[in-house]
Every structure is written in structure tokens, then in C-alpha cells.
Computed example of a mutant assay.
Amino acid sequence: MSREKYLAAPLSALILTGCVNLAPDYERTAAPVPMELPVSEPASAGVSTLAWQDIVQSEDLRTLIALSLEQNRDLRTVAATVEVARANLLTARSGFWPSFTASGSAQMGDTFQDDATYSSAFRDSSSAQIGVSAWELDFFGRVRNSNDAAMQTYLASVEGERATKISLVASVAEAWLQLAADQELLRLAEQTAGSQKESLDLTQALFDAGTASEIDLRRASASVASARAQAAEFRAIVRRDLNTLRYLVGTDLPAAIEARVQLSPSAVKLDLPVGQSSDVLLRRPDVIQAERNLLAANANIGAARA
């Protein structure tokens, strides 16, 4: 048997081994949700995704949301996590390529004379070396699976950033509407306190004229104190709502923003489409992020087995 035939068997085994992927087979399980969401009047067929710009109608609220997407500290932390995942992906991809080392040296020649008898001469010389210091032959798919795990981790971090943005937009809009509602309650409480003060003045006049009793005067005075206490409570709540908005935005609010917050007209769109296919749930970034993390775990198993 020739030498080539002896080498053919191990080379064929190596080639076949390189095609083996030791990661578990991923199978998406059936989602435990109905095919259609239970509504009385289903909308037109199809799955559509709405952006927050399509829902928010108030220009002031849009400005506030855009500012929060730029300045929120938690969102900056998530964005930094995405950058770390991207850097890890680039590092994992470097495993496909060999590592090279190079070195070089140069020497300039000259003649040296110590005295009239002895002398020495050096000629110009130069040398350079280049070589492969490390290169892993990915026969069992360790490098490939490590790269897949880094890719899925990066994609999961991107979806996590998108989920954080959606949550931040919803929180800012909710805080805006809560501030508008509390301001309306504050106005009502102040009007009630004013009405109770007028009733107290009238009761005081009747008491001075002798047509009202002291009990009526005390009761009217207690009503005024209660209305004023309730108005003070709502003032504190409004200040708390403003501080919540400042925390979510991550910076100072635009000037006179408190005066422009209102419930009517509605700051958000109310006639949203309903009755879509439940497949729209699969577009949620937290669901996609969970699946990406599962795929990364599968790839890590394959790398560990290799």
C-alpha cells in the first residue's frame, strides 16, 4: 500500500471531525399563548409594531422623552454593556485567525583602530523573523461555538437595550400623565379650600349677627382647615411627580414644563389597534433577549464539549 493511502485515512477523519458541532440542537418550544388575543372586535389581520412617536401626541412630552433617551443614567449603563458585548464579539472572532510574531534587527558597520597595529571592522547586517505563534485548528468547533455564543450575547444585549428604552419611554409618559392628574386634583383642592373659606366668612357674619351658633362656626372652620390640608398634600404630591420626572430624564426639566402639563387634549393616542395576532408578543425585546441568551448557552455547551 502506498504512502498516500496510509495518510488518506487520518486526513479523512480529521476533515470529517471538522464538520462536527458538539452544541445541542436548539428547538424553539411552542409558545403557551392563543393564536389571537381575546377581544370583542378584532382588527385587521397582520402584525404591526408601533413606535412611541406614533403614540405620543404632545410635543412637550415628545421633547421630554427624547431628552430622557439621551440623558438617563440607567440607559447609559445598558449602552455601555452593549459596547462590552461588541468588544467581546470582536475578540471571539480573532480565534479564527492565527497569531503572528515578528522581530527584526539591524547593525551598521564601521572600522575601529585601537593603535597602529590592531584594527577591527564590522560590516552592515540586518535580519528579520516572522512566524505563527499560535493557531488552533477548529476540528471540534470550539472556536466556532465560542464565536456563536459571543454573537448571541451581543444580540441579546442589543435587545436588552431596546427593552430598557421602551420601559423608559413608558415610565416618562406615565409620570407625565400622573403629574397632569395630580395637578388637576390640586386645582380642585384649592377651589374647594376657597369655597370653604367663603362659607366660613358667611358663617362668621351670621354668627356675628346672632343667627348662627358657635357649633356652625366651628364646623365651617374645621372644613376650611381640612380643605387646606388636602391642598397642601397635593402640592407635595406634585413636587414628588416633578422629582420623578427629573430622575427619569436624568437632567433638569425644560423651563415652565409644569405649566404645560395637561390631561386634555390627551397627550397620548387613545384609539390604538387591538385584536392582532398573538405573534406580536414574539416581537417583545425581552422575549427575544431570552431566546438569544438560550442560544448563547447552547453554543457555550458546544465549546465546553469541544
Rank of each mutant, 00 (worst) to 15 (best):
E4P: 03
K5Y: 07
L7M: 13
L11N: 04
L11E: 07
L16W: 01
T17Y: 01
C19V: 02
C19H: 04
A23M: 01
D25I: 02
D25N: 02
Y26D: 06
R28N: 01
M35D: 14
M35K: 08
A43M: 08
S48D: 14
A51T: 14
D54S: 14
I55P: 05
E59A: 09
L61V: 02
T63V: 09
I65Y: 02
A66S: 06
A66M: 04
S68D: 04
L69T: 00
Q71G: 06
R73P: 02
R73N: 09
A80P: 07
L89M: 10
A92C: 06
A92E: 02
F96W: 10
F96E: 03
P98N: 03
M108D: 11
T111K: 11
A116D: 14
T117M: 05
Y118C: 00
Y118N: 05
S119C: 06
S119N: 09
S120Y: 15
S125L: 12
S126N: 09
S126M: 09
S127W: 04
A128P: 04
V132W: 03
S133R: 12
W135D: 00
E136Q: 15
F139E: 08
G141C: 08
V143I: 15
N145T: 08
N147V: 10
M151R: 13
A156F: 02
E159H: 12
G160Y: 09
E161Q: 14
R162V: 12
R162S: 15
A163E: 11
S167G: 11
L168E: 01
V169A: 03
A173I: 01
E174R: 04
E174F: 05
W176H: 01
Q178E: 09
Q178A: 07
A180R: 00
R187L: 14
A189M: 12
A205Y: 03
L206Y: 08
A220H: 00
S221Y: 04
A222N: 04
S223F: 00
S223E: 08
S226W: 04
S226Y: 05
A227H: 02
R228D: 01
A229W: 08
Q230L: 15
A232C: 07
A232W: 01
A232I: 09
R235Q: 15
I237G: 10
R239C: 07
R246W: 05
Y247Q: 11
V249I: 11
D252Y: 10
L253P: 00
I257P: 04
R260T: 06
R260F: 05
Q262A: 13
A267G: 03
S278T: 12
D279H: 12
L282C: 02
I288S: 13
A290I: 05
A299M: 05
N300C: 03
A306H: 02
